[in-house]
Nucleic acid binder design. Structure first.
Length: 559
RNA sequence: UGGGGUGUAGCCAAGCGGUAAGGCAACGGUCUCUGAAAUCGUCAUUCAAUGGUUCGAAUCCAUUCACCCCAGCCA
C-alpha cells in the first residue's frame, strides 16, 4: 500500500485508527480480513446487526474480505435451524461471504493436533479436578489460585490420557484438558483455562465423531489464525480474554497472528438484547415466535417491515466506541421512516371508520391520486369516490378543541384528492354515539381543478364506501413498557415489564381498493397514519397489515 | 479491598495541545391538498471531580469519584 493510499483510509472510529496503524506498520500485510462468528444457538438480533455491519463493513471499506464462521463448539446448545436462519438474516441485511462459509467444527482435527503439540511442549495437561474443586483451586480476585495436583503429570501420561479422552474412555465432565499458564494471574482467564471438555452431544455437523469439544477461548484464536483473519473484532466482554487469545496464537504454530479489537455492544431502549431473554420470550409464549414483529431480531424486524437499508443506516449512525451505551428507540424509528418516506407508495386507509353521506353528490367517479410525492415517476392511480365514504373517527370533533383543524359541525375540510366538504348534520344512536355524518360538497373544489379560492385548514384521508375493502391491522408498540427492562427491581423479572399494549389488533379497518392486490414485502404509507406492510399471514381473502411505524404526529403530541 | 475497561448535552458521538463536529430527541418559525416530508432557527463559556504543567488543556501529569466486565467443563 502506497503512502498516497494511506491518506484515503477510512477513519470514522477507533477501530479504523488501529487498522490504519497496522497497515502503515505492515503488521497485517497489506490487506484486511475480518470475520463474523455467530454461535448458532439462537436468532440474530439488531445487536448482531451492529457487529455484522462492523465486520463486513470494515472489510468493504478496506477492500478486504469478511468470512462467515459459525462458532459451533458447543453442540448441546446449537441447532441446524439457527445455522440456516443466520445465513438468511445476514444476506437479507445486505452482506455476502461469497465462498467463505466456515465452521469452527471444520477445524476440530487441527485443533486436536495443536492441543497434542501443546501437551508435548509441556503447555497443557489433563486435569481430573471436579468442577467444584477447580473453582476452589482457581482462587479469588485477591487470592491467587493454586496449581492443580494433576499439573505435574508427565507429557507421556498427558498424551495418553488426552487420547483416551477423545476415544471415549471417560465419562462426561470427568476430565478436561487445561492450558498451563499462570494460576497466580490477576486475570482469571489465564489461571490454567480449560481447552477441552468431555461432552457426549450429537453435533449437527460432525455427528458422533467427537466426545470432546474445544472451548471458545481455544478454538476462536486458532480458527481466526487458520483463516488468515487480520482483525478479530468482538464485543467488550472479551477484552479480558485478549491475553489468552494472544497466548494461544503465540504458543501454537499458526501462519498468522490476528489482532483482537473490542467494541461496546448495542443496547436499545424499551427492548432486551440478550439471546437468553429473547429465547424466553419465545419459549414461554410472550411473543409468537422469533420473528414476531415486536422482537428486536432481524427476522422480526424484517417481518415488521423495517427495510434492511434502514438498519444499516442505523448501525452507521450509532457509531462505534468502547463506552457502554443505550441508544434511544426513536433513532431506529427515524432511520426506518427516512427510508420509507422516499420508498413507500402512498395509499389511504381508515383505521376507525365513521360513515359520511354526501347528500348533494350523485353517481361516482374515479379520481387520480399521486402514488409517491417524493418520486413523481411512480405515477398515479385512480381511486373511486361516491356519495358515501368513510373518514377517520378522530378527524371529526363535535365540540372542537382549540387548534383542531379537521371536520367540525358546520365546518369545512378537504378530502385528499377530492373535494372540500362541509358537515351539515350529525346522526347519533340512542346512546348518543355518533354513527354518521351528513355533509355537502362543493363541486368547484375538485382536486387539480379547484378555482374556488377556498382555503381550508385541514385535509383528511377517506375511503369510498362502495369499493373499500376490509382488513385487519396489527399496530405495534414497544415490547416493554420500561425504558430499561434489564434494570429489574427486587422480586421482579424482566417479564414483569412487558408492555401489555405492544400489539393492538384492529379488525375492521377499511382500505382503498388498490390495496387488494398489494404485493407481499412491499411497504406502503397509509397517509396520515403510518407505514404498513402485508404480514406473512395476509391472504387475498383476509388482508392483514403490520404497522411498521407511525407517522410523526405533532398534533397528537400537542394534545 | 485484585485485574481489565469507560466517563463530552436528554440519547448516541467527533475531537488526538490552538479555544466543543454531526445525528436523534426537544422547542419555536416557514411551507404544505399527508398536523407527514421539506426547510430555517434554538439547544455544552464547558468535556466526571479536584489539583498541576503550559502563553494556551476535553486533549499532558497526579489524585479522587462513578459505572461496566471477569472466579462456566457458555460464547
Amino acid at each position: 500500500m502506497s503512502a498516497r493510499d494511506f491518506a484515503s483510509l477510512p477513519n470514522n472510529h477507533f477501530i479504523n485508527t488501529i487498522i490504519n496503524n497496522d497497515l502503515k506498520e505492515g503488521k497485517c500485510g497489506d490487506k484486511v480480513h475480518t470475520r463474523f462468528p455467530p454461535e448458532p444457538n439462537g436468532r440474530l438480533h439488531i445487536g448482531h446487526a451492529k457487529a455484522i455491519c462492523i465486520d463486513f463493513g470494515t472489510a468493504q471499506e478496506y477492500n478486504g474480505l469478511c468470512n462467515l464462521r459459525f462458532d459451533d463448539t458447543n453442540p448441546s446448545k446449537e441447532e441446524q435451524q439457527f445455522i440456516d436462519a443466520i445465513q438468511e438474516d445476514v444476506h437479507w441485511l445486505g452482506f455476502d461471504w461469497q465462498d467463505r462459509l466456515y465452521y469452527a467444527s471444520d477445524y476440530f482435527e487441527k485443533l486436536y493436533d495443536f492441543a497434542v503439540q501443546l501437551i508435548k511442549d509441556g503447555k497443557a495437561y489433563v486435569c481430573d479436578l471436579s468442577q467444584d474443586e477447580m473453582r476452589a483451586y482457581r482462587g479469588t480476585p485477591t487470592v491467587p489460585g493454586t496449581l492443580s495436583p494433576y499439573a505435574s503429570r508427565s507429557v507421556d501420561e498427558n498424551l495418553e490420557l488426552f487420547a483416551q479422552m477423545r476415544e471415549g474412555h471417560f465419562e462426561d465432565g470427568s476430565r478436561v484438558l487445561r492450558a498451563r499458564i499462570d494460576m497466580a494471574s490477576s486475570n482469571f482467564n489465564m489461571r490454567d483455562p480449560v481447552m477441552y471438555r468431555i461432552q457426549r452431544s450429537y453435533h449437527q455437523r460432525t455427528g458422533d465423531k467427537w466426545c470432546i469439544y474445544p472451548m471458545y477461548d481455544y478454538a476462536h484464536p486458532i480458527s481466526d489464525a487458520l483463516e488468515g483473519i487480520t482483525h478479530s473484532i468482538c464485543t467488550l466482554e472479551f477484552e479480558n480474554h485478549r491475553p489468552l487469545y494472544e497466548w494461544f496464537i503465540n504458543n501454537v504454530d499458526v501462519p498468522c497472528k490476528s489482532r483482537q479489537i473490542e467494541f461496546a455492544r448495542l443496547n436499545i431502549t424499551y427492548t432486551v438484547m440478550s439471546k437468553r431473554k429473547l429465547r424466553r420470550l419465545v419459549e414461554e409464549g410472550y411473543v409468537n415466535d422469533w420473528d414476531d414483529p415486536r422482537m428486536p431480531t432481524l427476522s422480526g424486524m424484517r417481518r415488521r417491515g423495517y427495510p434492511a437499508a434502514a438498519i444499516r443506516d442505523f448501525c452507521d449512525k450509532i457509531g462505534v466506541a468502547k463506552a457502554n451505551s443505550t441508544v434511544e428507540f426513536s433513532l431506529l424509528e427515524h432511520c426506518v421512516r427516512d427510508i420509507l418516506n422516499t420508498n413507500a407508495n402512498r395509499a389511504m386507509a381508515v383505521i376507525d371508520p365513521l360513515k359520511v353521506v354526501i347528500d348533494n353528490y350523485q353517481g361516482s367517479e374515479l379520481l387520480p391520486a399521486e402514488n409517491n410525492p417524493e418520486l413523481p415517476e411512480r405515477g398515479k392511480r385512480e381511486i373511486s369516490f361516491s356519495k358515501e365514504i368513510f373518514i377517520e373517527r378522530s378527524d371529526f370533533m363535535e365540540e372542537p378543541v382549540k387548534g383542531f383543524h379537521r371536520l367540525t359541525p358546520g365546518g369545512e375540510v378537504r378530502l385528499k384528492f377530492a373535494y372540500i366538504i362541509k358537515c351539515e348534520s350529525i346522526v347519533e344512536d340512542e346512546n348518543g354515539n355518533i354513527i354518521e355524518l351528513h355533509c355537502s360538497y362543493d363541486p368547484t373544489t375538485k382536486s387539480g381543478s379547484d378555482n374556488s379560492g377556498k382555503k381550508v385548514k385541514g385535509t383528511i384521508h377517506w375511503v369510498d364506501a362502495v369499493t373499500a375493502i376490509p382488513a385487519t391491522l396489527r399496530l405495534y408498540d414497544y415490547l416493554f413498557a420500561k425504558e430499561n427492562p434489564d434494570d429489574v427491581e427486587e422480586d421482579k423479572d424482566f417479564i414483569d415489564y412487558l408492555n401489555p399494549h405492544s400489539l393492538t389488533t384492529v379488525d375492521h379497518a377499511l382500505l382503498e381498493s388498490s390495496l387488494a392486490d398489494s404485493d407481499q414485502g412491499v411497504p406502503y404509507q397509509f397517509m396520515r397514519q403510518g407505514y404498513f406492510i402485508a404480514d406473512y399471514d395476509s391472504t387475498p381473502q383476509h388482508l392483514i397489515f403490520n404497522r411498521i411505524a407511525s407517522l410523526k404526529d405533532s398534533w397528537g403530541k400537542q394534545k
